[in-house]
Design a protein around this nucleic acid. Sequence first.
DNA 1: TTTTTATTACCTGATATCAGGTAAAAGCAA
DNA 2: TTGCTTTTACCTGATATCAGGTAATAAAAA
Lengths: 211, 211
Amino acid sequence: MTRKYKTVIVDDHPIVISGISGLLSDFQIVEVVEKLQSGVALLDYIETNEVDLVLMDIFLPVINGIDLCKTIKQKYPKIIIIGMSSQSERSLVMQFVQNGGNGYILKSASFDEFKNCIHKAIDGEIVFSDEVRAVISQPQSEDLDRIPSLSRREKDITLLLSKGKSTQEIADELFLSFLTVQTHRRNILQKYKVKNVAELITFLLKNNLLN
Amino acid sequence: MTRKYKTVIVDDHPIVISGISGLLSDFQIVEVVEKLQSGVALLDYIETNEVDLVLMDIFLPVINGIDLCKTIKQKYPKIIIIGMSSQSERSLVMQFVQNGGNGYILKSASFDEFKNCIHKAIDGEIVFSDEVRAVISQPQSEDLDRIPSLSRREKDITLLLSKGKSTQEIADELFLSFLTVQTHRRNILQKYKVKNVAELITFLLKNNLLN
DNA sequence: TTTTTATTACCTGATATCAGGTAAAAGCAA
DNA sequence: TTGCTTTTACCTGATATCAGGTAATAAAAA
């Protein structure tokens, strides 16, 4: 008999944990050895226990799933990590995979999709649920995988923009020339390839890049 | 023997549904008669079936839980409706209860909390999970309770604004006059007392009022 | 040390937004 | 039926944004 994959579920919602473990109880090949509600608890657990597979929520309190994934993979590259969330923001998924994640499943995925993904991930594939795949496989400027970061000054200005400040008000507040702020604004919009501040802020907030 | 409460679970995440029905299977007093993934499906279902208790996610596609609750309560005030979500935004909870909701539970609540709340709700109480109660019972700047809501059209326009569309583009997309869209924009900004679209979007996204 | 990035700043012209006003028709609720 | 809200639409003028340039200085990375 083949060894079972020792699996840990990490989610801050007990109900979700219960749902997933119910789903996994059908599996012959995996065995849920622990259910945790935080990233810190997971880091503790893998220090002293053998783990083969982790199913984790991306939006966790304190440490988010993306950073958590990176930390774990650095020390234990063999652990298979599958991320889950309610939204399929392209950049989130990309970051997760770049940090070593083995797959990304939307919580709105069907049971079949879930099972399928977990099976394939165990076989070494990088897996995505249907909706996620639809989002990330869109044409979408093949190079924009890695989201550019804002410089210090650009962050200052973006924050004030999100508060509804005008170019002139920002210039006054930061003791800069109106024209300088204008240049920064243009650079920021260009950086994220957005048309105006409205789209910029939507992008930044949805990707947790603002504050 | 007392009659069992016919219960419907509404959530767009199959896993959550499974988790909750697992939880409810321990209950002698309730019986899960249907599991649905959308508000529309629920409206259909209650037209032709008897329902005593509804457990619904607040963030549902198409119709949100708050509007859904209102609609149902108008026609079937006897149905007990408990809302669930991942966040406990004060204004959301308030709106839900004002629309007739019988309780609000965070998905991060423990199983015991869940059971407790459902029991009490059946007994006629308006119930909240611990974390929710902590949030809503805070003093809170007495005036900012009620956040104005957007009309259907205003929502359409706001969504397009968040995608960086210009007034003209929105007019074209919705088959409206440029001037009409301009009027809507002004009304929306006024409603939330913000200076421009940037501030509007920050406000809406931080309060989960946009999709 | 050379190169690149960040920050600062100026110029112009086209287009868009914002703020003020008004107002009619349709739909819903009291 | 009488109001209230929503949706539609028009007008004007002041500001603001966006997109296209260029360019010097400072700081950080190669």
